[in-house]
């Protein structure tokens, strides 16, 4: 049986490759060297060679928070344009004016939100 130009022997080669990789992973887990006495520093998180200070999951300043808020709103709204764009050839001019109004209504608050986002003192 030949599938799109791939000869039957190809299936066996592919199967052999995948099973060889699986075998290597299993063997590797069996014969891997284990450190019998790890030093306390070994499992510490990386901090440029220093002893790690404080917890890793600290409170962190969400510095660009306004962009996240804008994203939550506009990512959903942008999807509505797909329903229109997909049927554009069938619709022709029929849906143009609502979509134009839709885009303009979208862009005015977006511009204002960007204006606010660029001012650090607002957030």
């Amino acid at each position: 049986m030949v599938a799109q130009g791939i000869p039957e022997i190809g299936a066996y080669i592919g199967f052999l490759f995948v099973s060889t990789v699986a075998l290597i992973i299993v063997l590797r887990l069996l014969i891997t060297p284990r450190d019998p006495r790890p030093t306390p520093e070994k499992k510490k998180p990386f901090e440029s060679g220093q002893i790690a200070v404080g917890p890793g999951r600290t409170r962190f300043i969400i510095q660009y928070y306004p962009y996240l808020l804008m994203f939550v709103v506009y990512d959903v709204i942008a999807m509505f344009l797909f329903a229109w764009g997909l049927n554009l050839r069938a619709l022709g001019e029929a849906g143009s004016l609502p979509v134009l109004v839709f885009i303009i209504v979208l862009l005015i608050p977006l511009g204002y939100a960007l204006h606010l986002a660029n001012h650090r003192e607002n957030w």
Binding site: P45, F46, E47, A52, P55, G56, R57, T58, F60
Partner: peptide, 8 residues
């Protein structure tokens, strides 16, 4: 990972 660089 509970480490600072990965978190950032």
């Amino acid at each position: 990972a509970n480490s600072k660089f990965p978190f950032i």
